[in-house]
Design a protein around this nucleic acid. Sequence first.
RNA 1: GGGCCGUUAGCUCAGUGGUAGAGCAUCUGCCUUUUAAGCAGAGGGUCGGAGGUUCGAUCCCUCCACGGCCUACCA
Length: 494
Amino acid sequence: MDESNPLRAERLRKLEAWRQRGIDPYPTRFARTHLAQQLHELFRDLPAGADSQTRAALAGRITARRLMGGATFLDLRDGSGRIQLYATADLLKPEEYELFTQVDIGDFLGVEGLVFRTRRGELSIKTEKFTILAKALRPLPEKWHGLQDVEIRYRQRYLDLIANESARRIAVMRSRIVSAMRRFLDSEGFLEVETPILQPLYGGAAAKPFTTYHNALEMTLYLRISDELYLKRLIVGGLEKVYEIGKDFRNEGISTKHNPEFTQMECYWAYADYNDMMALTERMIAQIAREVLGSTRILYQGHEIDLSPPWRRLTLREAILAESGLDIEKHSTLEELRAEILRRKLQIDLQPTWGKQVDELLKVFVEPKLIQPTFILDYPVELSPLAKKKPGNPKVVERFEPFIGGMEFGNAFSELNDPIDQRERFLAQEALRRAGDEEAQVLDEDFLIALEYGMPPTGGLGIGIDRLTMILTDAPSIREVILFPTLRPRGETL
RNA sequence: GGGCCGUUAGCUCAGUGGUAGAGCAUCUGCCUUUUAAGCAGAGGGUCGGAGGUUCGAUCCCUCCACGGCCUACCA
């Protein structure tokens, strides 16, 4: 909005007029006695037209005005809900009543008065005293349709939160999801820890990093792409159950499922394997749903989904075989796999390696079908340089990814704790990197040294908090569950 | 990166190759239990930006900016 906007100029005019009358439009504090929601609960049984015995002091933002001449109604919204304010020319001094009628939608007001219910049944405050707590200079979005413009909703999330109940709901739900997850992990005996976000070497995932520079140390640092390698160092150190909830950063494209910075929970559990992590995952997600939604049955994008354990378990090979007819075990080289894809005329892009081709088959043919909670297990070793090989099958690792609603939202494995094998895997990744794979992992000598001191058998799990929130709030885009999603900056003033 | 769509008043949206429309919001007047309050009136626009075609462009064309969806990238 332009600085010279007449709506803003009008509000500035009011602000000045109030100041000239000795009113401070931005005072420091206001003592509340109640929240709106408390009053609705306390006076649920107060009949229409009746006064209560209670005087209450409330504060919040004015969201609607109904001026009737000698009487004025304002809607006040606080963090808990909405309540109506009522004032008349009889109850207030003339200059006070006039000021009450001049309050704009968007202004913050503190008010004190008797709680009563109007003839039409609306619980209200009979205003005896009121204070301007903050003058708003810009008009709020329109009251019927709320704020629709997605660009404004993302760029100025505060307006989205003011105007749209769904935005408030998602923000609150996300907080409760994270909180419930913490409670669950704490109760399971996990220790919450923090590991570096600025790292001299990045690792733990196949992704391109963001790069930055530390002036005093004169060194390049990377924003972490995962927490994994540091958390496993803690397992080496004897912290047997650890977790971290925090931001990871991946320098890649943006989509409805990807934001360059996203929140992940990673946990590591000594003496456990990926079967234990599967059981942990399904119990945790079901528990979070019960706490946050009151049920393990959810609706996601039109699908009824039951989150109660046990979830379906399906090997990657079985899943691809079922959905594409292709047996990746029989076609165990890139050439054979490609030949079979072409022979079957499968609609899929060809990939540079066997592992990536298998991953593509999963993504195209299997993932969209995984509506009900499903663990896909046993991934190709070349896609999983940090996971332990499956006993008896050196081409496959003990790894799973959980899917709900056709979306992957995590990753887990029996952690590789053999330092010799780990070094070989890193070296294989280095070879891929030299061959042009920018996302191949880099060898982390410090991590290898840690493993050489001995790491117990360990199960590890990562859960994408943003995607989990999408699933539990029925959000179609990751931008709906991230308060401030990454957007290209806008040149012009708001 | 590619394709498609969008951008009109503070907000939500109509609309046309010939001087720009509605509702809400704002302002003025009336109105003392209203609640999408009501009634009467008024103001408010570089029609995203820059070029082009045309007697004339908000509309047609090109480029640009931003956004959305799909796709690619990304376990």
